[in-house]
Design a protein around this nucleic acid. Structure first.
Lengths: 346, 346
DNA sequence: CCGACCTTTGACAACGATGAACCTCGATGC
DNA sequence: GCATCGAGGTTCATCGTTGTCAAAGGTCGG
């Protein structure tokens, strides 16, 4: 590797002048600039970012702390964030927390000081711990849970999204709409479930439909997965409570429900309509393809990095909290329409 | 952040002595060591890795270059590698190449010099380019394609795995076994398809069964996905060629095939058995759950990092090539047995 | 023609750590 | 008693950049 020193020598100028050219600083004559540029090209010089970071104290490395990578939502979120970060000239370092508060904190202790900023999808963090994290390194949380602390957060339109889903069902004439994925424990880390249930109630209220507790299905584990969806659906079918639509709080739940319904010989959407939330690839490729709420992943990535950029540049008050809620979009597919689109279609 | 200087002052020793303690170098009295350790603890000092890297020229950051993160195989591979790397005290920097040779090279040009090592799942790289990459930064490729260049590579047991699948089918009494996912273009980046087809032939030969071209289904795009699997399967069904089993070269293809079969009213596994390759989560949760070959992801991660470690430490000849093929494991599930296990079960 | 002022450039220290070389001091060998 | 040795410690230069400051040279108004 050639260094700035080599370039300076070759161009017959001082080190500092090369630095000026590289960083596009003013007060360099056009002639000098060209000489330096030529030398840079000839030597294939690239500034050593390690040395630069040491000198400036700035680091263009931002951490991305996620519980897992294997769940589609997280891997696609990571992809979006990496793409957006590249556009901003930032490098993303992904860290896995396993959804464990201890690991979340350890990560920040360990890597925090060497990161320029941090995007975190927290799971176990308490209000106080979230603040601790944000004080260690410029941080933006991507989380459905509201923190009682002055921290930045980007969230999905949980409530509005489900409300739109219910509205969609109503507009198609369905009236006995089940909710799948509720949580009644009130645990703060299940905030997404709570908000989505609120959205469900909003939707019913909009339509003047009654809220029927028998149609609200709780699921077990905190991970919304297909098995939980199938189990919940089977419970409803066996209970014999009549219903003509299912709004699941996650695509995985909806896919499980879909399976349980087909298993029971119920035709979707002819007899029962189903919709999910997240707009994962699995939803698109399901059979029938699944109506879902696209939570604006790209926007979440963009906004989160924008907020983080502000913090890294110090252009925002230190102990302040901002909230951005991404736009949602209703994506209608076969599971609520019964159209003739081929399997795997849009 | 406190620096080594602060620690030295607090412990009443010189900077270098602190450095010795931190790095576990010899020639420090027990007494001094304790004083320094105490000071480190009190100040919560952590060595600035940026400065250290600058001085030593060593970096504990290894790149992981993958085409995507959204495909389950890659995200779970990434998880395994990150876990293993942590055990080795290495940090992993994930980079997305989109499967583009240009991007793969650009990445190496751009980040290569700042990485201690690189694990790459190459897609577009030619033999010569692979060598260029390996010369820029210590590199281990994770790839099914053999490179005609002295580079390290870790691969799956493509051929053996499919051979085992065919053997499994045969042992269950199936005799007209279709292969789904073949490639006849001969393009080197489709090496996995070629090897798996070889394994298919091996399996037939083992059993004394004839190779019937009509049962070998090529699929379109280079990405093995569900749609391609479904399309291929439909083609075979329509052709009317009798078959009683399908060995798909990827789980995604198998899932698509499963769908096409069910769509056509064919019962799996009662009428036709289906198996895949990769042992993804989707295979486990499919209905019926899918028999598959587990390619030894954990082992791949472990071996790849072991090879890379050697290179980073220079304990292996510079221009040399080593090959590790991971063990495969046949994972039998409902799609070939028709057992009574509940949907979503193991 | 002089000082004020601006532009262009360079010398030098600094970021925080580590490696090389050197110093000190008590113990050891002959 | 003197050279030698090794443990324990220090000092100083250095990695490759950027920030600070000052010097050199030019322009311009008075």
């Amino acid at each position: 590797m050639s260094t700035m020193h080599d370039v300076a020598q070759r161009a017959g100028v001082s080190l500092k002048t090369v630095s000026r050219v590289v960083n596009g600083e003013p007060n360099v004559s056009e002639q000098t600039r060209q000489k330096v540029d030529a030398a840079i090209a000839e030597l294939d010089f690239r500034p050593n970012s390690v040395a630069r970071n040491l000198r400036t104290g700035r680091i263009d490395l931002v951490g991305l702390a996620l519980p897992h990578l294997s769940q589609p939502y997280f891997s696609s979120l990571a992809e979006e964030i990496m793409r957006e970060a590249e556009r901003l000239g930032l490098t993303v370092l992904i860290e896995l927390t396993e959804g464990d508060a201890e690991a979340e904190l350890a990560l920040v202790r360990e890597h925090g000081p060497h990161l320029g900023g941090l995007l975190m999808y927290p799971v176990g963090l308490s209000d106080a711990q979230a603040l601790t994290v944000a004080r260690t390194v410029p941080t933006v949380f991507i989380s459905e849970r509201a923190y009682d602390a002055p921290v930045d957060r980007v969230a999905m339109a949980n409530r509005e999204g489900v409300r739109a889903l219910v509205g969609h069902m109503v507009s198609l004439g369905y009236t006995r709409i089940a909710a799948l994925g509720a949580d009644h424990t009130g645990r703060p880390e299940r905030a997404a479930a709570h908000l989505r249930l609120e959205g469900y109630r909003d939707g019913l209220r909009d339509a003047g439909l009654p809220y029927l507790p028998d149609l609200v299905l709780e699921v077990g584990t905190p991970h919304w997965n297909r098995q939980e969806g199938a189990t919940g659906m089977r419970r409803l079918i066996q209970a014999g409570t009549p219903f003509d639509a299912v709004v699941a709080f996650a695509d995985a739940l909806a896919l499980g429900a879909l399976h349980a319904l087909q298993e029971a010989g119920v035709r979707v959407p002819a007899e029962v309509a189903v919709a999910g939330f997240d707009d994962t690839d699995d939803a698109r490729y399901a059979h029938p393809s699944l109506t879902s709420i696209a939570p604006g992943r790209a926007q979440i990535a963009r906004e989160a990095l924008a907020l983080l950029n502000d913090r890294m540049n110090g252009t925002v008050e230190r102990e302040s909290g901002r909230l951005v809620v991404a736009d949602h979009q209703l994506t209608v597919r076969e599971s609520t329409l019964g159209g003739t689109a081929a399997w795997g279609g849009a």
